[in-house]
């Protein structure tokens, strides 16, 4: 937050009052966050900017007209954005399937050519999804196993690691000391190693390759680590800087 709007409550109050600088601040602070969310959801380019601007536009209008005051502004914006992105993705999938159906049901050759051109265009312009690629499926499966076993704090930690958040920041979010965070990360790594080993054991050989591909560079196999001491430093952004 800026000096003028030190908290989100101040920012919201400014927007309620139609303060132009508060609206600017909202955009400056949250547009990068929402663009990042969009990128993670596979939305890029003009679509991404349009979606971010439209959402912020609607939120500002609602804030000014109805004096809504979400308690957690960042969570509110991210949740709203994700909902819209999912809806958009659903609509796009539905459109694709409708186009496909339409082209197969049309009788004359001329009509079919037109329908197929539109259908091809729709398919080509829709976001390319990598959800069906084998490596992604292996990661999805592993993520499911991990999510079933880890505590909430560990989940926050692993999400933080996925974001390359500095360990000090993760410690701050979990309200623990930096030293304690290092110990926990170390334990998490060992637990993760065990879960991954068990998961890999359940896979077929070709699926197993997809997970070990991640680890191939180090010629590492999913066996218990030899470095069991917490001083083994995690590869987090803070250490690499």
């Amino acid at each position: 937050m800026s000096d003028r709007f030190p908290t989100s409550a101040n920012l919201l109050a400014g927007i309620h009052d139609g303060d132009e600088s508060a609206i600017r601040e909202l955009f400056l602070l949250y547009a990068p966050l929402l663009r990042d969310q969009a990128r993670r959801m596979g939305i890029d380019g003009d679509d991404r900017d349009d979606m971010v601007t439209t959402l912020l536009d609607d939120v500002v209008l609602h804030l000014m007209e109805h004096r809504l005051a979400p308690r957690d502004l960042a969570r509110y914006l991210v949740a709203a954005f994700r909902n819209r992105a999912r809806r958009r993705h659903r609509d796009s999938s539905r459109r694709e399937s409708n186009m496909g159906t339409a082209s197969s049901e049309i009788g004359t050759a001329q009509q079919r050519i037109v329908a197929e051109c539109i259908s091809e265009y729709t398919l080509a312009s829709s976001t390319v999804s990598d959800s069906a690629t084998p490596s992604r499926l292996a990661i999805v499966g592993l993520a499911r196993c991990v999510a079933a076993e880890l505590s909430d704090d560990e989940m926050k930690m692993i999400v933080g690691i996925g974001r390359h958040i500095p360990l000090r920041e993760i410690a701050d979010q979990l309200q623990i000391t930096y030293g304690a965070a290092r110990v926990r990360v170390h334990r998490l790594r060992e637990r993760f190693r065990r879960i991954a080993s068990e998961y890999v054991a359940t896979l077929k050989p070709n699926e197993k390759n997809e997970i070990t591909r991640f680890l191939r560079r180090a010629e590492f196999e999913l066996t218990p680590s030899t470095s069991n001491h917490p001083s083994a430093q995690p590869v987090l952004r803070e250490q690499s800087q």
């Binding site: 999400v159 933080g160 690691i161």
Partner: peptide, 16 residues
């Protein structure tokens, strides 16, 4: 090996 595990953890973290 630790680095590789962290890479995998990172990928799983992003998926979660």
């Amino acid at each position: 090996s630790d680095r590789s595990v962290y890479e995998l953890m990172s990928a799983v973290g992003r998926e979660i």
